[in-house]
Design a protein around this nucleic acid. Structure first.
Lengths: 291, 291
DNA sequence: TTTGATTAGAAACTATTATTTCAGAAACCA
DNA sequence: TGGTTTCTGAAATAATAGTTTCTAATCAAA
């Protein structure tokens, strides 16, 4: 009689407990105790813990239908994974009318996974610290991006402009960067956007700024821009998607959350800025009122 | 400098990520991927999974303050145990260390909900139709954005440039827009980015272009830019988040998916473009090779 | 381009883990 | 009680995991 392959270790033990010998039962009980983590160590550890010899462990593993102890352990790991990993939304389609294989759905899957992973790695304390740093109006803020990332830098700059003054968008053309560095003061902050492929010039800019005492905040990807090495704070986003290019969705998410956080911290001042801005826009009749 | 003993593996990786080398980062990411189960197998397995040699694994373990790989793994097991034995465990939280009320978590909730709602409403057929339209190299493509959305227009333009030629980014300054309209031909496509607050000038531009026989594609929000009324195709993204401003995350998502779709449709031509681009970039030594 | 420093993996090596063998102990049975 | 079977772990062995060493490759600086 062969033990079916898709049963958990616990189920196999339970269903065949009668057939186990004294030493094996001792072992089985030790495994069920604090299951399944107790079985994740080496064969020696679990044998010692249940006061049996290692051959007993091997014998029982085989009795339960495994090829050996490592085989049993692999099953345990799979179970742990199933328990821990969050199955929500794994198999519900995003765009309901499109097949799973449609680019929209595949893209959505990756982006969601990127979000999850990125957020798991972010240190909220660091996030708060940067928000505080950026809401310090006495410090000048300089923003720079690379070939691809200048759109992000631009987006960040446009919004931060509404929240605070003393803000500079460093021009995209790296030839003129040294001029910008000259204008950076010791307590200023340089916000760098750099995802692969990392640009040498950005690294140099970071080094120059650092040597002037400027605080560096880097938004980069999971592999980390070289500029992040010099940074006081850095945020690493997952950016891989089923495409020839990388995704800026998660970085943008972090940026927006950061803007919101800074906004919260400097609400009093912002309120005035916002009002002035509204009036200004109304006067120029450039925008329509909505709602 | 010694790494404190009571930190999780994830925390150690996060805090010392900058000090890790290329291969080590690759490994670190593989461990964070499906953490912590991914690190529960043998050193060989995790090394293979992250495309790194086993010595690299040992080196990183030591760098993180462990005595060796088994030591690191023991810590992982302890973490699994802690996670499992605490079933409430915050799996609904995005940023695990932050409270539910932290801006990161509230923001993540909204953005996810925005994604779901937006995707539910998108017609895949329309998406495909636009992808086809944009991959028709005989049509000129013009891209325009407003005060806030010009970053999106810019992002779209930068990527589309790599996919195809015959592409124009309409300057942000609306004074010069009439000139651009003059250059639009009857079969051209005008891609408009406009989310609230909608800009009058964009509506005018849309009308002018339309009257010349130009096909309009509008990326807007759930309420719909006035320009969308004239559009052949429009995409409505949800943009509300707990912030004083709107979120461009979902629009960006759609844009990226669209770029990927266009890329797929015009792969043959793109391949050449990509190669030329790579060479160009390598020549100018502006970018670092990665991997 | 050369030089020196850093990095990474192949290979050799060591340590540990897993399996098998086997002999003694325990249980069972007539 | 003696014979038989079953069980168990010590020890030997095999397999695999983990570590170290060392050289080639890579990269930055001169």
């Amino acid at each position: 009689m062969e033990t079916p392959q898709d049963l958990t270790v616990a189920e196999r033990i339970r269903s065949r407990f009668d057939e186990l010998t004294r030493a094996e039962r001792q072992l089985a009980n030790a495994i069920m105790d604090n299951y399944p983590v107790s079985g994740l160590g080496s064969i020696t550890v679990i044998a010692d813990a249940s006061d049996v010899s290692t051959p007993t462990v091997v014998r029982m593993a085989k009795k339960l239908g495994f090829r050996g102890f490592p085989d049993l352990q692999a099953e345990l790991r799979a179970e742990v994974e199933a328990t821990i990993s969050n199955p929500i939304s794994k198999h519900n389609r995003w765009a309901g009318n499109a097949p799973d294989t449609h680019i929209l759905n595949r893209f959505a899957d990756s982006v969601m996974e990127n979000m999850r992973q990125t957020l798991r790695q972010i240190d909220p304390e660091e996030f708060n610290a940067v928000a505080k740093l950026l809401s310090d109006h006495s410090r000048g803020i300089h923003v720079v991006g690379g070939r691809i990332t200048h759109s992000l830098a631009d987006y960040f700059f446009t919004h931060m402009q509404m929240v605070r003054d003393n803000l500079t968008l460093v021009a995209a053309n790296s030839n003129v960067w040294p001029h910008y560095v000259l204008n950076m003061k010791a307590d200023d902050v340089l916000v760098i956007f750099d995802i692969r492929r990392y640009e040498r010039d950005i690294q140099h800019l970071a080094e120059m700024a650092k040597s002037q005492g400027v605080t560096l905040v880097v938004f980069t990807d999971q592999w980390g821009s070289p500029a992040a090495k010099h940074a006081t704070h850095s945020f690493h986003s997952r950016i891989e998607v089923p495409s020839a290019w990388d995704s800026a969705v998660v970085p943008l998410f972090i940026i927006e959350a950061m803007i919101a956080a800074v906004q919260d911290l400097s609400w009093v001042e912002t309120e005035d800025r916002m009002k002035s801005l509204e009036e200004l826009l109304d006067q120029t009749r450039m925008f329509r009122k909505f709602k």
